[in-house]
Amino acid sequence: MNDISPDKVFVPLELHGIRLEALAPHHAAGLRAAAMDGELWNLRVTSVPEPDQVDQYIFKGIEMRPSRFAFAVVDAASGEVLGTTSYHDVVPAIGRLEIGYTWYAKRCQRSHVNTTCKLLLLAHAFDTLGCALVGLRTDNFNHASQAAIERLGAKKDGVLRHHALRRDGTVRDTVMYSITRGEWPEIAAHLRYKLAQRPIAALPRAGERSPC
């Protein structure tokens, strides 16, 4: 992983009806609708943009390359934007990156979307980009996110105390996790097993009630 570029990162990534593609200005309306589904910007422990900040959010995601590569999460059948996720804190010299800046429309939560995205991103990071380690992080009060990361099989590295500002001006502790290249084959098998155990139902469209 001595070199990483948009051409290497943004290749076709699709599984179980979910497609990941480079986050771009044309995703703005869809990303705005995804954020409005559940008014996600009101959640204290996430960094979802308010509707009028979506264009700036997308621009910043593009501007941060090559330390961050932002993806749009798209329903492959309808083309609807479901949310976003990123590779970030990319350090090619040591083969390390993190997966984060992840959020989905409320109707997609507790579905197959997150597991599918993580499988796509982890496989691409380890098997194509040649990573030695992939990190994940979350707010110390975001217990749902911590549980989701632990279900992936990631190991908890520790807590960075007084680490980052929340949107409300308070300072959070950051819980750090990681997966090594040696751990990846077993985790990959586990994620594929999990996806095989649940039916991959069609996702509700915007404005529809989720069955979950």
Results as ranks from 00 to 15, higher is better:
Val73Asp: 10
Pro66Leu: 00
Arg110Glu: 03
Phe71Cys: 07
Glu80Phe: 15
Gly153Asn: 01
Ala77Lys: 15
Tyr104Gly: 13
Val91Cys: 05
Pro66Glu: 00
Phe71Pro: 03
Ser47Trp: 10
Ser47Pro: 08
Asp89Leu: 07
Phe69Glu: 00
Asp55Lys: 13
Ile99Lys: 11
Pro51Gly: 15
Phe126Ala: 02
Asp75Cys: 07
Val48Phe: 01
Ala93Ile: 09
Asn114Leu: 03
Asp52Thr: 08
Arg151Trp: 00
Gly135Trp: 04
Val48Arg: 06
Arg137Thr: 13
Leu97Met: 09
Val134Glu: 04
Val113Trp: 04
Phe71Asp: 03
Phe126Asp: 00
Glu80Lys: 12
Ser78Phe: 11
Ser67Glu: 08
Asn140Gly: 13
Pro51Leu: 07
Ala132Phe: 13
Arg44Phe: 05
Ala105Tyr: 01
Val48Ile: 14
Thr46Met: 09
Glu63Met: 13
Leu133Gly: 09
Gln56Trp: 15
Gly130Glu: 05
Gly130Thr: 04
Leu97His: 14
Leu82His: 15
Asp75Ala: 04
Gly79Leu: 14
Ala144Thr: 11
Ile94Gly: 01
Tyr87Ala: 00
Thr115Val: 02
Val134Ser: 03
Trp103Ser: 12
Ala123Ser: 09
Arg96Asp: 01
Pro66Cys: 00
Cys117Ser: 01
Arg96Phe: 02
Pro51Asn: 08
Pro51Gln: 08
Cys108Ile: 00
Ala132Gln: 07
Ser67Gly: 12
Ile94Lys: 03
Ser86Gln: 04
Arg68Thr: 08
Asn142Asp: 10
Glu98Val: 04
Asn142Leu: 10
Ser86Glu: 07
Thr102Lys: 01
Glu50Cys: 03
Ile149Ser: 02
His112Tyr: 15
Val113His: 13
Val90Arg: 00
Glu63Asn: 13
Cys108Ser: 03
Thr46Cys: 07
Val45Pro: 10
Gln53Arg: 11
Val91Glu: 09
Glu98Asn: 03
Phe126Met: 05
Glu150Ser: 08
Leu129Arg: 03
Tyr104Asp: 06
Val134Phe: 00
Ala123Ile: 06
Gln56Asp: 11
Thr128Ala: 14
Val74Phe: 09
Ile94Ser: 05
Ala77Val: 05
Ile94Thr: 06
Gln109Gly: 08
Ala70Phe: 00
Tyr101Glu: 10
Ala148Asn: 13
Arg110Trp: 01
Arg137Trp: 11
Pro92Asn: 00
Asn114Asp: 03
Tyr104Val: 11
Leu119Glu: 03
Lys60Gln: 15
Gln53Pro: 07
Lys106Val: 11
Ala76Lys: 04
His88Trp: 06
Ser78Lys: 14
Gly130Met: 06
Gly130Ile: 05
Val113Ile: 13
Thr102Asn: 05
Leu136Tyr: 11
Leu136Gln: 07
Leu120Lys: 02
His112Ser: 15
Gly100Ala: 07
Gly130Pro: 04
Val45His: 15
Leu136Trp: 06
Ile62Gln: 14
Arg68Gln: 14
Ala72Thr: 03
His143Glu: 07
Val113Leu: 06
Ala132Thr: 04
Asp52Lys: 07
Phe59Glu: 09
Gln56Pro: 13
Gly79Asn: 14
Leu133Thr: 15
Tyr57Val: 04
